[in-house]
Structures are given as structure tokens and as C-alpha cells.
Amino acid sequence: MYGEKAYALVKECANHENSLPPYNASLVQEVSNEIRTLVEENQEDAQTSTEETSDSGSVVSTIRLRHAAVKRNLRCLMAYHYNRLRLLRKMRWEFGSILPADIKSNLSPAEIEWFAKYSRSLASYMRSVGDDGLNLAVDLKPPKSLYIEVKCTVDYGRYELNDGTVLLLKKDSRHYLPRSECEELVRQGVFEHIL
């Protein structure tokens, strides 16, 4: 039936609300093919109906149905891609301008390009705020206290604080650090916030 594949595509989005599944190139290709076939069939019918005007009435409804299917398929395609971009946007805020490799491998070339563009626009916007820019990707939560206690989940190595002190971050070590300095590492999963 028309539109079934497109529905599967949208369904995939709904099933992965918070994670980005691999880009389903083959299904997108199939939906595109379906659209192409439908449009071509329509054009053919339109051609013949102008030639034999006597029974054009029967063709019109067929064309309408196909046209509706094309529109629906297009809409599903757009929804699929748009939803992926929204997820990607969320990741830009979480991980910063450099994506983890396992996410990057799930993207289509067009999405990688979009991400680079988005990152660039966002970075240039952040630079233009105030006199010397403002990093909007920090201070995501209202600060409750200046220092927080964190646990290191991986062997991160040396990490230098703003005031010049160098820390050695080992797995399972605990630190009491200024919140502003370790917020990004917490989001990247290097630190675990202990409440």
C-alpha cells in the first residue's frame, strides 16, 4: 500500500525519542522511489487523459489518490529528517561542537554538513554577545552552590583549573570542584555528580 514505508520511517523516529539511530538510507531511498514512481504514473495518466477526453473522469480520481500519497510521503520524509535535526541540535548543546565518533557514524552526509553549519552559526552568535562573547553552553542549570562534589568515572589524565592548579583525574577518584569548571565534564560523562 502507498505510504507504508514512509510510515515506518516516522515510526522509527517515535521509537527513538532520545537517541539518534543510524540514518536509514535504504528506507529513505525506497520512499523516494515510491514518490518518483507515483509522480511518473501520474504524468503518464495526465498525458493520456488529455488525448482521450471521453473517459477522463475515471483517471482524475486515480491521479488525486496518487497525488495525496505523494504529499503524504513527502511530509513523512520531512518529518523524519526534521526530527533527526532536532535531536542533533540537542546534542550540540550537550556535547559541544565535536560529536562523539559513535554518533557521527549514525549520521548522513547532509546531516554532518548541517551540524557543522549550525555549530558555526551558534558559535558566531555566542561570540557576538556582549563585549567579548558569552558561552551559552555553560550554566545550563541554576547554580545552587559554588562547589560540587564529583566522582571521576574514567581515567581522564591531567586537568588544569582556571586558577592554574593541575589535577590528576583518575577513575573513581573524588573531587570537590567549582561547579563552573566541571559542568562540561559532567555533561560529557567524565564526572559523576554526587548529591
Binding site: H81, L85, K117, Y118
Partner: peptide, 10 residues
């Protein structure tokens, strides 16, 4: 950027 992404789609 969004327009380009959609244009590439079709």
C-alpha cells in the same frame, strides 16, 4: 541551513 537540508531531500 534547514532549507538546504530539505532541498537535498527531494
Amino acid at each position: 541551513a534547514l532549507k538546504q537540508n530539505f532541498d537535498g531531500l527531494v
